[in-house]
Design a protein around this nucleic acid. Sequence first.
DNA 1: ACGTTTGGCACAATCATTTGTTCCATGTTA
DNA 2: TAACATGGAACAAATGATTGTGCCAAACGT
Lengths: 331, 331
Amino acid sequence: MSIKKIREQTGFSNSTISRVLNGKAKEFRISDKTTRAIVAAAKKLKYRPNILARSLRLQKTMTIGLIVPDIRNAFFGELSWRIEELLRGHGYSTILCNTNEVPENEEFYLKVLIDRQVDGIIIAPIHTREWKDLHDIRRGTEIILIDRIFYDTDIPWVTGDNLKAAEALTSILIKKGFKRIAYLGGTSGTYINSMRFQGYQNALKAHTLPLIDDIIQFGGYSVEAGEAMMQNLLKADPDIKAVMCVNNLVFQGAMKVVQGYELTTSNPIIMGAFDIHPFCGIFKRPLACASQNLEKMAQAAVSLIVNRIQGKRMRKTHLILPIRVESHRFR
Amino acid sequence: MSIKKIREQTGFSNSTISRVLNGKAKEFRISDKTTRAIVAAAKKLKYRPNILARSLRLQKTMTIGLIVPDIRNAFFGELSWRIEELLRGHGYSTILCNTNEVPENEEFYLKVLIDRQVDGIIIAPIHTREWKDLHDIRRGTEIILIDRIFYDTDIPWVTGDNLKAAEALTSILIKKGFKRIAYLGGTSGTYINSMRFQGYQNALKAHTLPLIDDIIQFGGYSVEAGEAMMQNLLKADPDIKAVMCVNNLVFQGAMKVVQGYELTTSNPIIMGAFDIHPFCGIFKRPLACASQNLEKMAQAAVSLIVNRIQGKRMRKTHLILPIRVESHRFR
DNA sequence: ACGTTTGGCACAATCATTTGTTCCATGTTA
DNA sequence: TAACATGGAACAAATGATTGTGCCAAACGT
């Protein structure tokens, strides 16, 4: 009971107080004297509006749900950081959800968020398509896909041009003269892995290089997966000289193995990977790197969701952002 | 209007429906027939309770605010990840807030969270003590400090034994035979920096080594700060052989410089730092590392806040967790 | 036959706002 | 003087769920 307190102090009605405190005094022609009295009382009583009651009445919570696989992954860490900051600028709070690549968690969180009546959800999904449950539980809530997207969906999304970037990244290694380029991939069937592997294949094809099954693996997106894949790879081909990693975590795992391996064999291995920009500065070794512009990606997602919530129809609701590809310390 | 829908379908009153749906049918001796009818109607209509209305009535939101400096910092990234996961297990959602080391952001977020009537706040504060505003804006909301704490406060907290860990870490370097050990510190006056620097000093004193001002710096907690401090250090003492870094970010910045420097001078520098465990696997070089147990820290914070919310008074409300100190690849 | 217990459920207040409608004075015009 | 406009603010409904109290009938006991 809080507007009530002001009512008891000033004698004015709920409606008048509410209007004054929401800056609608002029609009409802409330006298200056009244306005001043209410504002003074509010200040004296340290009045703070009850957000729950307001949200209940207004049918909006000024809250956005953010569902990512794992915030410990630096990629999603930075993405989440940017999204949270931008949303705050629009007056929204962010509820954070880590699915840990478990589809059941994703469904659980979607339900929770929608039950909480968030105004919108930004999600890097595990599901690879619009499963039917989604429409059952989503009740008018705005949803934006980020990074990982569905095809043939009306749900707006923003992602990077993974296909082209993977092709460019692979081409860098090819142009260095390598003919056997290993691919350490993520979970088979996922959007990111499909795109990047397709780009890898395209590059090989463009240079009339064969696809070699022995040096291609799809082990998942984690550091552990990267470690295991790299170990397998070295068993399959102890002489491998160039390796493409599907993401930063796989790269980290692979690097653990590679750095140890190089100490014993003096067989330098050159690596290419996505989103390993932080490592390019810290490792003094040749690296090829595809760096997504997370600032742009976050901006696009936030702008999409904020506009949709406000009911504005946007011209472009499906965005593919360019990815910068570059090499470091190549001789 | 949603219980209303069930009322229209079944003819039973709000209260009966609410009780059935909250599993209180037995307690209020509602007949099985009625119970079944209501449950069936709820299922048919895909009833979902309105969390806002419930929170308004119950005066609790099942929401916790988490305020950290920057989730991009792997330390807070993992900490946040663990806290979110544990809170979810208790039925809470987590609102994420990054202060970016700006005190005004901290005050802003505290207000926002309290206005949103979160049930509790877990915060790694920028402020170094209980400033008086805090009590004005906090209105009975439970607060737990994590990692960075205040002295002389009734607010519960959990942190690591930074003093002892810094001392042990420095001692490792001393026992390696180094007499000049640089200290690259965080923001002067902050809790973490004070503790760790004190530990560093204690170790020197215990081995009757002098404090050398030229090789001690307090530049802040970021990668950029680490880079700058390391560059300054190399100017001040091009022959430095052992460096202590106050945290993982400073370590990363320093490493950028060190790795380049070593290529040109073949002067190996040994590094010690806090919370660089992920790097210990990936760099094949000697490192001394103080690794905080984030699982324990997150568990403690969550257990503290959940219990406080439930009104339980705990035996220990101020926890100092041990920190594991170890060296990697030392000869 | 009359009072008491118990099963089974409805009523209405409450949580704190926002907002469409209404109402009552003045002041103005015909 | 009656009709009308306008300023200024109150009334009450609506947002959905929870819960203390109260009511009615049937069963039970004496």
